[in-house]
Design a protein around this nucleic acid. Structure first.
Lengths: 333, 333
DNA sequence: CTGTTAGCGCGTTCAG
DNA sequence: CTGAACGCGCTAACAG
């Protein structure tokens, strides 16, 4: 069928072994002359390397797999960019697979696809794995790392923001602006540890400020636009809170739009702050003050972690910072 | 190293051939009893299929490759969703690769990666390929299809919106709302045929309405937010046009925000319409009236095209429609 | 229904 | 520096 190294060996009058060495650029294990010859013949014949054959014998692929969920938020691009730009110079190809958010079967298929290809490493983007799928992942020798998500147990390496600090710092900022009644909207307090940590940080900040927080201030959700809307709907036309911290940029926009529908003006009637800090913050009106995460860095760190020879179960945190824009108003008591 | 079918053959007391048949679910070429035995042993030993070996002999992968560019717009998700949901039931795994927008080297690497794996098919998302990379792609036997982009020549299959109609229909709509001076912003009139067709459709609609259009009404760009801003900046504080058609949702938001900065209110001072119609249209204020494309359908059609036995060089168009929201005001002459 | 055999295309010995 | 030979793990004929 397709042309193999044998074909080009014959055509070039050398042995397949030599062709292999030339094409793989094995140091100076061949003369410049034969190299030229071989390469030109290969070119001419339209030779295409068979990766399957190569991987079969070397048991090493040059691929890095990224498994992403069909997330309702939009920061994945930034992480992927960081991954891409770190992997590329290292000679790694990045292949991405989607795994449904809630679809265990699809998760399994994505995992199997990359495991059976014995990729060089696996990066999982804000993906909550079923126990059995986690076991599947761990049962392989393939290095992996979770990104933008954290866990309780020490068994899995991950790189993310320190979510307790996320809740804490954002709330501190709002407090510093004079707010006392502060809502927390559209963070997932049920299944994800991420949400739980954010709540804990939020509550601690309130406690330190001597604010007796109310459970009514918290409206959990899945970080989506709709969750933000729903939360604001609950706060109502005359909200008990003067500021709302939303679980994502999209959620914050949901909060703001719903507030507008309720006749409230942001930020004069209600301050809104988001967690994430993607470009969405800049394109809406008013621009959203955010607790900004270092998504790009997560991608970079993820690849570096996979590339590192020894892969201890690290749990790394990337920087966070408050970026002031126009959706939070200072409140003079 | 890892456990192979031989290992499990030995452990189960059968031959490797049988194991292979069972694991590949070759119809009823084995008894239920041995099947059970084999499967349980495989499970127990933690057997993991070696895809490289299987592909080496069958010369067929079950992977579909999607190559996307790091686009400044945001519709790719919808196309990918369509691809995913069509490929999945067909037993195909979707792997996605990024290829820089302008980076020929990165394009080549992405292409080579998937070609050397002899994937089942290649879908290219709004990707402008270098001539040499296009040649590379065409030199393989792998079926491919461009999505959300069109070409002049008949050599490559693509599925997209009819971009002439996009420009034409959108402009017709604006005309029907009573607008005469209509701007066209942030479409690429230089390199892409897409942009050229939209301009042509736009101009034809104007012509049919007896409007003598002015070149000043057109401000080309790369469909980005910044391009939208720049265009609006050019229109200025007292725009000659009463409505602007923007090349993408993001561009339209750029136009609207810049208009606001110039002291103009949308839609009372200036109407804005976008091309694409993604969820961005719903989350900004005012919500953007759009010429909406069928991105999901493009993905579906793309997979179906690849799956079809004979793959003629088809050029398919997916539906478009005007979705009215709040950014266009009827103008009473 | 099952065992046996023969490669798939490549990288890597080991001699020369 | 190069050729010959082997085998990676699996599937696809064949015979039984």
């Amino acid at each position: 069928m397709s042309v193999t190294i044998k074909d080009i060996a014959k055509a070039a009058g050398v042995s397949p072994g030599t062709v292999s060495r030339v094409l793989a650029n094995k140091a100076e294990f061949f003369s410049a002359k034969t190299a030229r010859k071989v390469r030109s013949v290969a070119q001419e014949l339209g030779y295409r390397k068979n990766t399957a054959a190569a991987e079969l014998v070397t048991r090493q692929s040059h691929d890095l797999a990224v498994i992403v969920n069909t997330t309702k938020t939009n920061f994945a691009n930034h992480i992927i960019e960081g991954i891409q730009e770190t992997a590329f110079p290292a000679g790694l190809n990045v292949i991405m697979l989607y795994a449904g958010d809630t679809n265990s079967e699809q998760q399994r298929r994505a995992l199997n696809t990359v495991i059976e290809r014995s990729v060089r490493g696996i990066l999982l983007l804000s993906l909550e794995l079923d126990p059995e799928n986690l076991t599947l992942l761990q049962s392989t020798q393939i290095p992996y790392c979770f990104l933008s998500i954290s866990f309780q147990g020490p068994q899995s390496p991950f790189i993310t923001s320190d979510d307790w600090q996320v809740g804490y710092q954002a709330t501190k900022y709002l407090l510093a602006q004079g707010h006392r009644q502060i809502g927390l909207a559209a963070v997932d307090t049920q299944t994800s540890i991420t949400g739980k940590l954010r709540v804990a940080g939020y509550q601690q900040a309130l406690r330190e400020a001597g604010v007796a927080s109310s459970p009514h201030w918290i409206h959990p959700g899945d970080y989506s636009y709709a969750a933000g809307q729903a939360a604001m709907q609950s706060y109502g036309r005359q909200p008990e809170v003067s500021a709302v911290l939303a679980g994502s940029d999209m959620a914050a926009i949901g909060v703001m739009n719903q507030a507008r529908m309720l006749g409230l003006t942001v930020p004069s009637d209600l301050s809104v702050m988001s967690i994430d800090g993607t470009e969405l913050c800049d394109i809406v009106q008013p621009q959203i003050t955010s607790l900004t995460q270092s998504f790009y860095d997560m991608g970079v760190a993820g690849v570096q972690h996979l590339l590192a020879k020894d892969t201890p179960t690290v749990q790394t945190y990337t920087p966070i910072q408050v970026i002031e824009r126009d959706s939070v108003m200072k409140r003079i008591p």
